[in-house]
Simulated scan of single mutants.
Amino acid sequence: MLAYDYFNFLDYQYYDSDFIKVYIAQVIVNIFITFLNEGVYRFERLKATTTETEQLKKEYMHSQLLGLKSQMNPHFLFNGLNTLSSLINEDAEKAEDFLDHMSKVYRYLLRNNEEQLVTLGTELSFMRSYYYLLKARHAEGLHLELDVPAEHYNAMIPPLTLQMILENSLTNNAVGRSNPLFVKISVKKNWIEISNNVQPKINNAEEHSAVIENIRNKFRLLCQQEIAVKETCGERCICLPLIPHNEMAMA
């Protein structure tokens, strides 16, 4: 006699076949619920990933606009051609060097327009050419120091990031022989720092905020890290995390 035979609730009788059917039904329901939960989870992940991808595309389109805005605007082109014209009359060799650096700047803009990341070495090479053009215009009013060991050249960074920061410093600070702007790009551990002396020229906080926010969002999306902006009464320093090359290769 089975133990179930001792119970007679509402004349219910136990059958092994009923138990098996109920057990199978529970297994099927559990499997269905598991697949449903997994499907919902994956759908939410897909939505989040799609949103991040779209946001990243928007940030890069914005950064391209900010970078190209400073390079392709009539003032930059006019100043470059005007400087080149003067050099042709004064020093043909310097004019040739200027034209070479100008070509490198525009070539970099066109080649890396769609890239999410470039090596730090590539970005610094571009910055040297970009600074050469600015130096020809500002002379002793602008000084750029690059203090980056070659061991960090393979680290990754969004293209035009350093250019945007330098251009932003020029826009928001007075630049002249009597009050030169000193900019330094250096590396501390796994961070690259861009610092400059502060000598406000105009109140252009809105554009400054747009540039910094654009860079901040790109690093959030690319490596889930925050940039740091340190400001004192006489200096501003922007710290950017360097993205390891092998980390992006595995992503």
Rank of each mutant, 00 (worst) to 15 (best):
F35A: 10
C237E: 03
R236F: 01
K218A: 08
S70A: 04
F182A: 07
L162R: 04
H152W: 07
T161M: 08
M156I: 01
E140V: 02
L117D: 03
I238E: 08
E54S: 15
D97E: 14
D18W: 04
H101C: 07
A3S: 10
F126A: 05
R137Q: 12
S125F: 05
D16Q: 14
C239R: 13
C237W: 03
I202R: 02
K218W: 00
G39I: 09
V211L: 04
L65S: 14
Q64V: 15
I238D: 08
V175I: 11
P149G: 02
C239F: 01
D147M: 04
R137E: 06
K230W: 04
E54V: 13
R107Y: 01
R111P: 00
L166H: 04
R107H: 10
Y130W: 11
M72L: 15
N196A: 02
F9N: 12
Q225C: 00
L84W: 02
S63T: 11
Q199P: 01
Y132G: 03
L134E: 09
I28F: 11
N179Y: 03
I215M: 10
E145W: 01
R177N: 09
C237L: 12
A92P: 03
L146E: 07
T53E: 11
F19V: 12
F182G: 05
L87E: 02
F219Y: 15
Y41T: 11
N37F: 14
L117Q: 02
E206Q: 08
F9S: 08
I33A: 11
G141H: 00
N197L: 09
H143Y: 07
V105F: 10
I33Q: 12
N217Q: 15
Y106A: 08
N197C: 02
L110S: 13
R128I: 10
S169W: 00
A155Y: 15
T34E: 14
T34W: 00
F19D: 08
Y15V: 06
Q116I: 09
S125A: 12
L87I: 05
H143E: 10
L66S: 12
H208M: 05
Q13L: 07
D147N: 14
S103I: 11
I185F: 05
E167Q: 13
N168P: 06
